[in-house]
């Protein structure tokens, strides 16, 4: 059933390809992301609830990889991602729910999160500004738009634009986002799920119907299960690196994240913290010979 006319392929063909932009729950990485309606409105009910949208993540064949390896990997990743999400969800972590799985076609359907990425909200983006090409200006917005970055997220009121641009960690709004990040990651780690790709693009601020504001962790494409302190520490190290590469001078933000993480993590924090120090050091010493 790998033909191009398989049901799932037809579904993709009728969906909207999301190239990039803050609306894409996951910026175009190495899979294709579509926005679709999985269940069409019924004949007697034409309501268009935004909840009906799903995000289809399509891991298309990678021609560079050996086909056997590619097939196994694709299936394993769809399966792994679905499992990790369910595991997180059971542990109360905010994640988009799974809506459809077709492992053999490499497609995973997820609840559409109508929010903004933390990367976007922190104004991180334009990497190597003078040399980027136009397809990457994902997170660049006009100033007027930026004015309201957090307006919809009753996290803070006031001059959010100036606060965010200054990225002052003492600011309430930013502080609250960082706390939420730390808390969600800790809940996830307590469930022994390692995200594997903790970047600010993979965190979304979103408010579901009940009006509160949630921080949702997304893109569990590289997630796996582990009880090892080492893996949790490396997960945090990846996060630190992601912060420093997309949001220059963000050490104080990371500190806030880790503080909230520590609070939720409880007594396991001590060993993770110690290992994180090791990993930081090891990362600096790693290679020896040119």
């Amino acid at each position: 059933m790998q033909t191009s006319s398989s049901s799932t392929q037809l579904l993709l063909a009728s969906s909207t390809l999301i190239s990039q932009g803050a609306e894409a729950a996951s910026p175009l990485r190495i899979s294709k992301v579509f926005k679709a309606r999985l269940h069409p409105a019924s004949r007697n009910d034409a309501k268009n609830s935004p909840d009906e949208f799903v995000l289809l993540k399509y891991r298309f064949n990678k021609q560079y990889r050996h086909p056997t390896l590619d097939g196994t990997l694709t299936k394993a990743r769809v399966t792994g991602e679905a499992r990790a999400i369910v595991k997180c969800q059971r542990a109360g972590v905010n994640v988009p729910s799974v809506r459809m799985v077709d492992a053999s076609e490499g497609v995973l359907g997820l609840h559409w999160i109508d929010g903004k990425s933390v990367r976007f909200l922190l104004g991180g983006g334009a990497e190597g500004e003078e040399e980027v090409d136009e397809s990457t200006v994902e997170d660049v917005v006009d100033e007027e738009e930026e004015e309201d970055l957090l307006a919809g997220y009753d996290i803070s009121k006031g001059t959010i634009y100036t606060r965010l641009v200054g990225r002052d960690a003492s600011d309430e709004a930013v502080e609250e986002i960082m706390q939420k990040i730390g808390t969600e990651i800790a809940k996830m780690h307590r469930a022994d799920v390692i995200h594997g790709d903790l970047t600010t693009s993979n965190m979304m601020l979103y408010h579901p119907r009940s009006g509160r504001t949630d921080l949702v962790l997304i893109d569990f494409g590289l997630a796996y299960t582990s009880t090892l302190v080492e893996d949790k520490a490396v997960d945090l190290y990846v996060l630190e690196r992601a912060f420093s590469s997309t949001h220059p001078a963000s050490e104080d933000l990371v500190t806030l994240v880790l503080k909230a993480y520590e609070k939720t993590m409880g007594k396991e924090w001590k060993s993770i913290s110690r290992r994180l120090d090791d990993v930081r050091l090891r990362g600096r010493k790693r290679s020896m010979v040119g």
């Binding site: 769809v78 399966t79 679905a82 499992r83 999400i85 369910v86 969800q89 059971r90 109360g92 729910s97 799974v98 809506r99 459809m100 799985v101 492992a103 359907g109 609840h111 579901p208 119907r209 009940s210 509160r212």
Partner: peptide, 23 residues
């Protein structure tokens, strides 16, 4: 039980059903 709790439980049940084949 808050609305938020219920919403989360509903979402989890949907996930469990969708992912059943690979769980």
């Amino acid at each position: 039980v808050t609305d938020a709790d219920l919403e989360k439980s509903r979402a989890l049940v949907v996930s469990l059903v969708a992912a059943k084949g690979v769980l």
